[in-house]
Amino acid sequence: MASSTTHDHAQPSPAAPESGESRRDFLLYATSAVGAAGTVLALWPFVHSMNPAADTLALSSTEVDLGPIAEGQSITVTWRGKPVFVRHRTADEIKAAQGVDVKALREPQADKDRVKKPEWLIMVGVCTHLGCIPLGQKPAEPKGEFGGWFCPCHGSHYDTSGRIRKGPAPANLPVPEYTFLSDTLVRIG
């Protein structure tokens, strides 16, 4: 068992101690490689155990009833532990959102690419700068210079399509995956 390595024929028949030496080196490197690979593989379950668990992933969809939300109103629902802004936009807001020159935006995105139905804007309400929750959901809150949302932490302004217009945030408020189950029922996630 000790001498049964495939390395034997690599060096036909030099001096005996030398071949023993190289056979030992080969065995040392091969064993170290196998052992190291095993150790790395054994670490994966530890790392993976910190990823979201099966029950956490199963809860990752939320249904929202749009019926009670009047035009011009917003609600905040929780999805994956984060706030999701659902806004029933007024005709003026839709017009403002659509009238923007897309090329001039920090993250160019047309309003029609951010909504499925123009009157319903659904997006994750977490500032893309450092994760604060922007203001603008409640009537009394500041809506920023573009009538959308305003992040009080570092002064990012979002427009009525949730796009970044001013301030340090690098990107628009992200739109989650959602589907309209009926005219008034949306499933987020």
């Binding site: 530890f46 155990s49 099966a54």
Partner: peptide, 12 residues
């Protein structure tokens, strides 16, 4: 939950 839902929880 570790046994059923956490990734490789049963192994740990």
């Amino acid at each position: 939950r570790i046994m059923r839902d956490v990734n490789y929880g049963w192994l740990l």
